[in-house]
């Protein structure tokens, strides 16, 4: 991948909070791993979904990219620039919606756009479009807006300058389905213009609707980076096997195969298996038995995610 194609490159990122500290057997401090050896890249013009259970390291990674956190190991480059040394240059080209977005309560939406527009100028035409798409009254003070409306103001602030790179930490949380759909449309519009979006979300439907690729992080480690289209076919399949006789493999035999994730006995001679990546070792096992019926189906995207979340 050339530098021109890569907008974000995270390489062996490790971030650990605190340290183990105990005096006279009493624990005073604890070491918490935020991210360990995390590597991935986000290409220009794509929407990259960043997924993982709560506390997996998503926000840590995002805050490290923004240079809010000091990383212990690894490197992060954005537009080929070092995230720490060139932080100000990078910030001229990004838009950010933090998790648990908080805005200045005594400002109106319009005042916030003016205020932050002084640091990163807005695109007036796109701002007009954003105003028409999001149905939030920007003349109202933030303190009198609902959570969903505040989130809309946050999205307007992040998108209005039409930044080259958007970092969105759960951007549609609190939005009603219609507004979330509008936000997705806008993200796709920005993507079509060559903008890059790095988005964290727990909403699998959202991820499926907008993302080109996803990365899944779990317990601080990146466990998967894949094109969303490949996920279902490549990564998880549901297999149902009905044997002709009571001579069947034992559950342990299935679980002994590398590709088998789980086994459920659904009848006297029937099993349902979840397998990942490759069915060949399963088929090899089955050659010694008489089979009545065998079906292999793609798992749903939700099943794929849950598989990695668990």
């Amino acid at each position: 991948m050339t530098e021109a194609e890569t907008v974000l490159e995270v390489s062996h990122l490790t971030k650990v909070y605190g340290r183990d500290l105990s005096i006279a057997g009493r624990k005073l401090g604890r070491r918490v791993v935020g991210a360990r050896d995390v590597s991935f890249a986000v290409r220009r013009g794509e929407i990259f979904g960043f997924l993982g259970p709560n506390g997996a390291g998503k926000t840590t990674t995002m805050r490290a990219i923004l240079d809010y956190l000091h990383i212990q190991e690894g490197s992060i480059t954005v537009f080929g620039m070092d995230h720490h040394r060139d932080a100000l240059e990078i910030r001229k080209r990004i838009g950010y919606v933090p998790e648990d977005l908080a805005l200045y309560e005594n400002f109106t939406g319009d005042e916030l756009i003016d205020y932050f527009g002084g640091f990163r100028p807005v695109d007036p035409d796109f701002l007009r479009e954003l105003r028409s798409v999001f149905r939030v009254d920007l003349s109202m003070k933030i303190k009198s807006l609902s959570t969903g409306n505040r989130q809309q103001v946050g999205l307007i602030l992040a998108m209005a300058p039409k930044p080259d790179f958007l970092i969105l930490d759960e951007p549609t949380s609190g939005l009603d389905p219609l507004m979330a759909m509008n936000a997705h449309r806008l993200l796709k519009e920005l993507k079509a213009e060559g903008k890059t979006i790095f988005l964290s979300s727990h909403d699998l439907a959202e991820v499926q609707a907008v993302c080109d690729r996803i990365g899944i992080i779990k317990e601080g480690r990146m466990i998967l980076v894949e094109e969303i289209g490949n996920l279902v076919t490549k990564f998880l399949q549901n297999v149902r096997i009905c044997f002709s006789s009571s001579d069947t493999p034992r559950e342990e035999d299935f679980l002994g195969l590398e590709s088998v994730i789980s086994v459920e006995r659904t009848g006297e001679r029937e099993f349902t298996l979840k397998i990942k990546e490759d069915v060949n070792d399963l088929l090899r096992l089955l050659t010694g038995y008489w089979i009545d019926r065998l079906s292999i189906e793609d798992a749903t995207l939700e099943e794929v995610f849950l598989q990695y979340y668990e």
């Binding site: 910030r91 950010y96 933090p98 977005l101 908080a102 640091f119 990163r120």
Partner: peptide, 14 residues
């Protein structure tokens, strides 16, 4: 306390 620093410092302000 109000969590407003995160957004503000994402702008190019030293």
């Amino acid at each position: 306390d109000k969590n407003t620093l995160d957004l503000t410092l994402s702008y190019p302000i030293p």
